[in-house]
Deep mutational scan, measured.
Amino acid sequence: MAAGGDHGSPDSYRSPLASRYASPEMCFVFSDRYKFRTWRQLWLWLAEAEQTLGLPITDEQIQEMKSNLENIDFKMAAEEEKRLRHDVMAHVHTFGHCCPKAAGIIHLGATSCYVGDNTDLIILRNALDLLLPKLARVISRLADFAKERASLPTLGFTHFQPAQLTTVGKRCCLWIQDLCMDLQNLKRVRDDLRFRGVKGTTGTQASFLQLFEGDDHKVEQLDKMVTEKAGFKRAFIITGQTYTRKVDIEVLSVLASLGASVHKICTDIRLLANLKEMEEPFEKQQIGSSAMPYKRNPMRSERCCSLARHLMTLVMDPLQTASVQWFERTLDDSANRRICLAEAFLTADTILNTLQNISEGLVVYPKVIERRIRQELPFMATENIIMAMVKAGGSRQDCHEKIRVLSQQAASVVKQEGGDNDLIERIQVDAYFSPIHSQLDHLLDPSSFTGRASQQVQRFLEEEVYPLLKPYESVMKVKAELCL
């Protein structure tokens, strides 16, 4: 049975990233139509530049190519590739079939990587351009969430054990800070992308030097003109047959890092959902379990974690691919890159769409948070109580021993009897502590235990987050809708 299948058929496997999760716009960027249309555009740009620099290419040939950029006979191309065992030459023939007058000058002087690699770089750039505003929107939604809850005390956790208090907004800023680093890295790697350009079979530009009869300047002009037509500021000066596969490492490393950030955020949300302090959106008709109707599973956060793990592992592909590119190139890269580049971007696209949807509907339960604080705060307040007693004339050592005994009794009630923490009640009825009984409410005010959390939130948002989001103001209103 021949390899390949009808990918629109229910009898043929289709990647869930495309069929179930990723956005239509990201799927289109990695589609065959987008790819092969870009090949034709690159052939047109090459012909236009070659004509401008004096090669015998007519206006009629150029116009014929322009008129057929979208006229792609995919069936013919597939048949040609089956016959020739070469995808680029299959599309040269297919393009030439609908451009008979231009057929002889299509791909003039070029090698397969002229269309293959340059198209990949265009796709990487455009895919990054799709991700950047999506990530900015996630940051914006979380920034709104953090600002609104900047002063809401909550129990902090280290080692997932109760620690000092923080605020809900401050905790959210930990998430935002990681995503801001990801946004900066995505922008950097996007701006650092260079075009492969017009380089020939081993990167020496020998074929173009021959076409222009040894004119170095025209060869350099050709490279520059096509690079500018493709919208790049610069091209690699040095290439082998391909652009260095280190570029793929750079791009997928940034995406993998984004995956790590999203995994951490969504894990926190899942843990908070278990504590009943916070939940992701839950639709009115949504079913959490087929057997347990009360369940409210954090399905979206779980999906993000599941896909983020996949995204983090994909960076190993370009690392290994770059390491086995012998001399000017081997074909070890080809099949692998067809999979890992598309999957990385479709996965990143999915987790950003999902995280935006989550961040637009996060639900906080202040009463649950308050109750958990009441359970733990008495123990945390013991040092403040000791200091207040010393100020009232008591002995630190005597007070410490009193607190120690009462704390152990209260802990026994919590752990052995399943009761509430009654340390404060014990202190309130103990005559030894009568000098500070009137101060206990103040000493137990949760806001006095959150330090500068709310001020940190305000400063972080104003100095770091809002300036970073400013270039994306025009796209901030787009909502994230999930079908599944």
Rank of each mutant, 00 (worst) to 15 (best):
R270W: 04
D268F: 04
E383M: 06
Q320K: 00
L42M: 15
M312T: 11
V92R: 01
R309P: 00
L271D: 02
R33G: 07
A22K: 12
L69W: 05
E383A: 01
F236K: 05
D248K: 08
Q51V: 05
K187Y: 12
E48R: 08
G394S: 14
T166M: 02
V405W: 09
L135P: 06
L352W: 01
L258R: 03
H437I: 00
V457E: 01
Q408W: 06
V364N: 11
S261E: 04
G4M: 13
S306A: 04
W45E: 09
V88A: 14
E383T: 07
Q164H: 10
S474Q: 14
M389N: 12
D317M: 13
Y13A: 15
G8H: 15
T382Y: 05
F379G: 02
S12I: 15
H159M: 01
L341R: 10
E328V: 01
R83T: 11
R396M: 01
L468C: 15
L352I: 10
L155K: 02
H107E: 07
C340D: 00
P293T: 00
I358S: 08
M476H: 15
M316T: 12
H310P: 03
E277D: 01
E220T: 07
L174T: 12
G259F: 00
Q416C: 13
T166W: 00
P318M: 01
G104L: 09
S289W: 06
T321L: 06
C98W: 06
F145H: 06
E401V: 03
Q408S: 08
S67C: 06
D398H: 10
C305V: 08
T244A: 11
A146E: 00
E283C: 13
E25P: 07
E302A: 01
M312K: 06
F236G: 02
K224D: 15
L444N: 03
G169C: 02
K75G: 09
E250M: 06
F232R: 01
A206S: 01
G203I: 01
L482F: 14
Q210W: 00
T227K: 07
V368Q: 04
F36I: 15
Q375Y: 05
R149S: 07
R196C: 13
S253C: 13
R171T: 00
V198P: 08
E220P: 01
A480C: 15
A322G: 09
S438G: 10
K187A: 15
D223L: 05
G214L: 13
S67P: 04
M389W: 03
M278Y: 08
A163N: 00
D398P: 09
L152K: 13
R452K: 07
G5W: 08
R196H: 15
G288T: 01
D398Q: 15
R37P: 00
T52L: 03
H107Q: 04
L255H: 13
R404C: 10
A102D: 03
F236I: 04
T52D: 07
D144K: 14
E48N: 05
R329G: 03
T111D: 03
K199E: 00
G96M: 11
K187N: 08
T204I: 03
L142P: 01
H93W: 05
S23Q: 10
V226E: 03
V478I: 07
D268G: 11
S257V: 09
T227E: 14
A342G: 11
Q164I: 03
Y21V: 02
L406K: 11
R141H: 13
A163L: 12
E148H: 10
G214S: 11
L440A: 11
R372M: 11
C173K: 02
N357T: 11
D422H: 02
C266Q: 14
F282S: 14
D430N: 07
L84S: 06
R245T: 03
Y432L: 06
H91N: 06
L341V: 05
F36D: 11
K147I: 12
S31L: 04
L443Q: 04
L55P: 00
F236S: 07
R137M: 12
R14C: 15
G393E: 09
V363F: 08
R33W: 14
P446E: 02
I358K: 04
K224G: 11
P56A: 05
A77S: 07
M278N: 04
G231S: 06
K187I: 15
R137H: 08
F28T: 10
K224S: 11
L53E: 04
G419F: 03
R374Q: 10
R196G: 09
L275I: 09
G8K: 11
A322H: 04
A410F: 04
T202H: 06
Q205N: 09
R338Q: 05
Y13F: 08
L362C: 03
K470W: 14
A150C: 15
Q325I: 10
I339T: 07
I62L: 09
A235K: 06
V29E: 00
K284H: 03
V262D: 07
T330E: 01
D441M: 07
M181L: 13
G214K: 09
M299V: 04
L17R: 02
L271N: 00
K470H: 12
A322Y: 13
L193A: 09
L484P: 10
E64R: 08
G259P: 07
M299K: 03
C98P: 10
D398K: 14
L53D: 00
Q210S: 12
I385Y: 12
M389V: 14
G240N: 15
S9P: 13
V368K: 06
F36E: 15
L124R: 02
L461E: 06
H7P: 14
P378E: 07
H107W: 00
F208H: 07
C173S: 12
K477G: 12
S289V: 01
W43Q: 11
M26L: 11
T242P: 11
V251Q: 01
D317I: 07
D144V: 13
E462D: 13
E481F: 05
G231A: 07
I436Y: 09
C113D: 00
C180Y: 09
F433S: 04
L193R: 04
Q458V: 12
C483Q: 13
D59Q: 06
L484R: 14
V88M: 14
V168R: 05
K35N: 13
E64T: 12
L319C: 00
E279Y: 02
L193V: 07
N384E: 11
R296G: 05
E64M: 07
P281A: 15
L174F: 15
T239M: 05
Y21N: 14
E283P: 01
L258K: 05
T450S: 04
T158Y: 00
I105L: 09
E81T: 04
L84C: 02
H93Y: 15
K233E: 07
G156T: 03
D144A: 10
H91P: 01
M316N: 09
A235T: 09
E80P: 05
C340W: 02
F379D: 01
H97P: 06
S15L: 10
L484D: 09
Q184S: 11
K187F: 10
T119D: 03
K199S: 14
M278W: 07
R309M: 05
D317P: 08
I386W: 04
G96L: 05
Q456C: 14
N336D: 07
C483I: 11
D191Q: 15
M389S: 09
G418D: 01
I176W: 02
V414D: 01
A2W: 12
L135T: 12
F449C: 03
T244E: 05
L355W: 13
W175D: 06
G109E: 02
F95R: 01
K66V: 02
C340L: 11
T158H: 02
M312Q: 10
G419Q: 09
E48F: 01
A102S: 10
L252G: 11
A230I: 15
V363I: 13
I358E: 01
R372G: 04
R303T: 00
D11N: 15
E79N: 08
S323H: 00
V390M: 11
A47D: 04
T321C: 07
L311M: 11
N185K: 10
L482C: 14
T111M: 01
F449I: 03
A453H: 05
A230L: 03
F30W: 11
R452D: 02
A344I: 01
T158F: 03
L155W: 03
R40F: 03
I269N: 01
V405P: 08
A49Y: 00
Q409S: 07
P467I: 08
